[in-house]
Computed example of a mutant assay.
Amino acid sequence: MRVDPNSSSAFLISGLKDITSSTYLSQSETEQSQNKRNYTVPELADKLNKRLVEAGTHIQVKLHEKTNTIMILVVADDTEEIVREIPKEKMLDMMYNMCVQVGVFLDEKM
């Protein structure tokens, strides 16, 4: 379906902002964006772990060696069992193997 950008009818999805109105930020949104702080990965992990205490889980941040992708592991506190991997390590391994077959990763200079 094509939509004429000059048409007066608006097609909005609930929960999403209109693109044209998002360029005009209110004063409170501007203040909030100025108050945002850049966090490091360990700081964010610590903040999240403090909130996950009630759930009986914690997260670990891990770097996938082959693709240099950050992985998040959700681990149960009592059993140290991995509840969830984001993204899954098998998926990253599969992605790496496909990239090697296609030739995306090169070890030598030409």
Rank of each mutant, 00 (worst) to 15 (best):
A55V: 10
I86K: 09
P87A: 08
K66S: 04
T67P: 01
E81M: 13
S9W: 03
L48S: 01
Q60K: 12
A45Q: 09
E65A: 14
H64W: 03
L16Q: 06
V83Q: 11
V74N: 07
I13S: 06
Q60G: 05
D46V: 07
V104L: 15
E54N: 12
D93F: 06
D78V: 08
G56I: 05
S9A: 06
T57C: 13
L48D: 00
E108K: 09
E85T: 06
L73S: 04
A76E: 14
N6V: 02
L106V: 11
E80Y: 02
F11P: 01
S14M: 09
V74P: 01
S8P: 02
G103L: 02
N6G: 01
Q27Y: 10
V83L: 15
T23H: 11
T30H: 13
K88P: 04
S33I: 15
Q60N: 10
L25Y: 00
E29L: 12
S33F: 14
A45G: 06
S28G: 09
S22A: 13
M71Q: 08
E54M: 11
N35L: 11
S9V: 12
I82V: 13
H58L: 04
D18L: 06
S21N: 08
T57E: 06
T69A: 09
M95L: 15
L12F: 08
E65T: 13
A45N: 04
A55F: 09
M110G: 00
E31I: 06
R84E: 15
K88D: 15
V104W: 10
L48C: 02
I86A: 12
K62Y: 13
D4M: 00
R37I: 15
V74C: 10
A76D: 15
T23G: 13
R51Y: 05
G103Q: 05
T40D: 07
T23I: 13
L52T: 00
S26I: 03
M98Y: 12
